[in-house]
Design a protein around this nucleic acid. Structure first.
Lengths: 246, 246
DNA sequence: CGATCACTTGAGGAAACTCAACAGTCGTGG
DNA sequence: CCACGACTGTTGAGTTTCCTCAAGTGATCG
């Protein structure tokens, strides 16, 4: 029995203050508790498929998932990297328009779609929080458009590490990344390439190039050590005042 | 005195049923009417600048604007094409994080930011509509990520015309584009290139290529005639069932 | 310990970019 | 009304970046 299975009370939930329930009061939380269910999905499994009905909407409690589209000829683009507190599914739409796959083992807090839609309608705290989260997602998506449209392969890879470092720091602690940060990579090289709009070979080469330039170290295939976060951020095309969006 | 200046009643507004006010009842509309103001901006003028405070939030009534980011070295990426009923500015944020520029003459329906934020809080119809619009924008942004990340230059240009045709058809009439459609281009070649993550030269070459392939005609620099919409959509990498998002 | 899979590296080619010249369009003023 | 100039768009030639194909290396797991 994993740790999450034993959590049933929302006030013990690791994403309590970041997820769609963040603004809920005790009574609202009780309502959510009554209709939620947990589900754990193994790494590599499919959470939703493009065009298929989505019976449940959910929040990621732990783990990492990708949201992607695959064209008929096999080209694939990941349009969202889903980390703890991120939301899966769109209220008001029956089907997912993207494939959602667990990159690592993922634990979800799920709600039956209709039930959740009703709660969004009836509970301003949920609606307001969902709006804020959606606006944040929109910023992230637009920020990523700049990366995809205008950055070089090297900048894209650097930007990916920088963005992931920011989000992981946000999740565990809530403060910006330390100067020296170690990153756990939830994605394979192929998945990173699909996120960056590159091939796996180019991605690999640029990771090597960043390592040779001393901007990162790679203690293992699934880990990246950033000796100087600011320096890497600069390499990712950020003006020195950092900033921008996650 | 232009046509819009004379419109003061929301029920005569061309975006009445598509904008953030779409779900409002008579009483709510009256409230909006009391605090709204119109503003017309000439083509080429700046509506908002990245990092600068945004005193008003607004809806586009007529015209077209671009939302873009410029990197220090001059590279620019447009992250959103704003057409009638689209919303400018983010409730809850004081500054714009993008440059917003009028591509053509633009007429706005504006609300003082604080006032609007209060109305969002107090008016579920506005909050709900804003949520739906934001979710739609998110879909558009993610769809565009696929274009930016995985499409060839030719597909990008085709996808741009297809997307624009869909949105223009949506605006004037609400139905999908006819088989043969004429498109009014609100953007210069350079602005198109910035939207597609290409150079102006590549964009121009691909427009020429599409013309030579008979997929489009170019009656003028700012117009595109699509003889067979489905055929162009296919060229844009859509599987024959069309669909996807605007 | 060996097979499989993920990742890396190399060589060659294709797509898009850069730089440069040219053409078409539009507005202004003679 | 035409001539001029500035600007926007097109086309061409050469270069760069990234992709493709292929082989090699390293990790992981039975």
């Amino acid at each position: 029995m994993s740790k999450i299975d034993r959590i049933s009370r929302c006030d013990e939930c690791p994403i309590r203050h970041n997820a769609v329930c963040a603004e809920c009061d005790a009574a609202e939380l009780a309502m959510l508790e009554a209709s939620k269910s947990y589900m754990t999905i193994p790494a590599g499994a499919t959470i939703a498929s493009a065009g298929e009905p989505l019976t449940h909407l959910s929040s990621i409690i732990t783990g990492c998932a990708t949201m992607s589209r695959t064209l008929e000829d096999g080209r694939r683009q990941t349009v969202g990297l889903l980390l703890p507190s991120n939301f899966i599914g769109r209220p008001g739409r029956e089907c997912s328009i993207y494939d959602v796959e667990a990159a690592s083992e993922v634990t979800l807090c799920r709600f039956e779609r209709r039930t959740f839609e009703r709660m969004v309608q009836d509970t301003p705290h949920i609606a307001a929080r969902l709006l804020m989260m959606t606006l944040d997602e929109l910023d992230v998506a637009r920020e990523w458009a700049v990366v995809l449209g205008r950055m070089t392969a090297r900048e894209k890879v650097a930007a990916f590490f920088v963005s992931l470092a920011r989000r992981q720091a946000q999740t565990d602690g809530g403060r910006p990344p330390a100067r020296t940060t170690t990153l756990k990579l939830p994605l394979s090289r192929e998945a990173i390439a699909d996120h960056l709009g590159l091939t796996i070979e180019t991605t690999s080469r640029q990771i090597t190039a960043l390592r040779k330039a001393g901007l990162i170290e790679t203690p293992s295939l699934r880990a990246v050590l950033i000796p100087d976060f600011e320096k890497l951020a600069l390499e990712a095309g950020e003006d020195d005042d950092g900033g921008i969006v996650a």
